[in-house]
Design a protein around this nucleic acid. Structure first.
Lengths: 158, 158
DNA sequence: CAGTTCGTTCATTTCATATTGAACGAACTT
DNA sequence: AAGTTCGTTCAATATGAAATGAACGAACTG
């Protein structure tokens, strides 16, 4: 089990995802859907990845919220279908950018409270935050350049 | 303990770092050094952050390998000094780019082994990897643009 | 309207890894 | 050269998040 290139890829996606700090199964699901190319149900994920129904649901929804996976409702079926969006990595970068911006803001707020006599520290920390912000802007510009308004509002909530 | 803005910042850096999948203490050390602005010893980190000597050593070295922290040997002191580099976030992004490229390569190798009848999958996965690679290139270009050869070879090894 | 089949939730368990602290070796000091 | 003072390593432990699976409600089905 797991020495086919396909399985190997799925495993690797899981490993990569967990390296980035997320749940391994989310990466595996993304890998699976990327391979399949067509909508797959939660039950199919459970079967293919040998995971519990709860994990499939939770992690598929996580991917959905990040905009890398879309949920479809095929006519004639009660099961939800999950499908990797055309360019998952774009949405991925977008959510990274969003997180970066959030962190930058958080840091800015904190550093604004630094005492007067620590102005040097405030400056260094401020520069740190600013770079994060610029990087976020930069990433957004980058993804926009590659995928000019293709997907449309992939994920609303969080 | 920990409601001064300074401490708050250090805590937040730790949280941010662990969100990214790294050890919390590494983030705290970076925050601490960023605040201080001047070289600090392992002993000082232990004292300030209330951590063990082992953690201080291990995590300082981790930061060093990522190029966000530099080790100095002040004359007249046996202790090593650790100092946040001028623009830590640049080195940070650089190491992200490197990791991205590595992952892209890994995926490419695997997808090359996909069976013939799965060429559609190979194509999707290939596009995924390619985007990763491009993003890595993009990040490198971005950091190079901001900091045009300023720091000099921050981290050799890995 | 009783009986299924879904997806979601949440308390519990499992699992990974961050953190510790003692032991070690190297480089100084006198 | 004996005695310190460093930084590093590594086995053991602690900690936090991921994964499970049973329970629940909603939406179909006959």
């Amino acid at each position: 089990m797991s020495d086919s290139p396909i399985d190997d890829f799925i495993q690797t996606m899981g490993l990569m995802w967990s390296t980035e700090g997320g749940p391994r199964i989310a990466g595996q699901i993304l890998g699976y859907l990327l391979i399949e190319g067509e909508p797959r149900t939660l039950a199919q994920m459970c079967e293919a990845l040998q995971i519990s129904k709860g994990s499939a649901s939770t992690n598929a929804r996580l991917l959905e919220s990040k905009g890398v996976v879309r949920r479809v409702h095929p006519v004639g079926s009660r099961q939800d279908g999950f499908l990797a969006v055309p360019h998952p990595s774009h949405s991925l970068l977008k959510s990274v950018a969003t997180r970066l911006r959030g962190q930058a803001d958080e840091i800015s707020v904190i550093s604004a409270r630094f005492p007067e006599e620590r102005e040097d520290a405030r400056e260094r920390v401020g520069a740190f935050a600013e770079f994060y912000r610029q990087t976020a802007d930069f990433m957004d510009a980058w993804t926009a350049r590659i995928a000019p308004a293709q997907g449309e509002t992939p994920g609303e909530e969080d």
